[in-house]
Amino acid sequence: MKFTQVLTGVLASATLSVSAAADTTLLNVSYDPTRELYQEYNAAFIKYWKGKTNETLVINQSHAGSGKQARAVIDGQDADVVTLALAYDINALAEKKILPEDWQKRLPQNSSPYTSTIVFLVRKGNPKQIKDWNDLAKPGVGIVTPNPKTSGGARWNYLAAWAYALAQPGGNDAKAREFVGQIFKNVKVLDSGARGSTTSFVERGIGDVLLAWENEAFLAIKELGPDKFDIVTPSLSILAEPPVTVVDKVVDKRGTRKVSEAYLEYLYSPEGQEIAAKHYYRPRDEKIAAKYAGQFGKVNLITIDGVFGGWNKAQKEHFSDGGIFDQLYDNRK
């Protein structure tokens, strides 16, 4: 008897603490490196929304590898909005009819309120003299990158290397393939997500260079000390556009469409842009971009649509089962 009383007590308090807190809750399902960004942005948006509508919001966050998160939403994770690493992962949701095919046209600039690119994080003083992509293919250089099969960031890494090889004089697909194969021969660890790779390089001290999101590289330096690492911006890299969208099936069921849309639109406002820039994402807003221009290295950015004909095509050619990445990785020994 006593025990059941205790149990019901515990259960009741648990359900109460979950449900009593707020008027509306939103769930933002995001990828790995955006944790700090959305922590600050959520606080700003809650304040803005309270001022505008007098409604109290609670915004919950979930973070993991981009592909894994898309999978969770497909399996029924009730995300009001998704803010993932690449359009391909949201396309996967569209394929399951969770949101419409033309989702990427619903917000300005390919639904990517901020951009990023791929840079190199090297050990202080750059002992291996890594300056550009071709230095990565040299023997004896230890590379850390996440696995392109599971990590959005890693796919950008891989495609940036490919695009660099194409842009060299006399570059073609065969040469690019050989070049990227050589780079992957130098890879020491393939972690499943971007944050795991950073930890391997920074905490466990593996490898000479980490291929990382620009924001992730800056964050590692900020958190762990500028005396330990340097950022190297290669001559050419890829314009990474991490897209955001509301999840139609969920917001329509929960009745949260209006606030979810406002949440994403506010990312484009000066305040949202400023927060993104503060967390080392490249802002779209030109004024804010000018303000933070000194923070980011100058780099020639190519786009996925321009060089690879969009994500669906790139994904199919390079990262599907038995695709070019699989062939290269199997042959590297």
Binding site: L27, D32, H63, R195, E223
Partner: peptide
Amino acid sequence: GHIRGLTNTIPLHVEILYNEY
């Protein structure tokens, strides 16, 4: 589903904190 404050148990919370430096 890794929703912080809702569906994180102690072991999951430890991993999250560690990954956030």
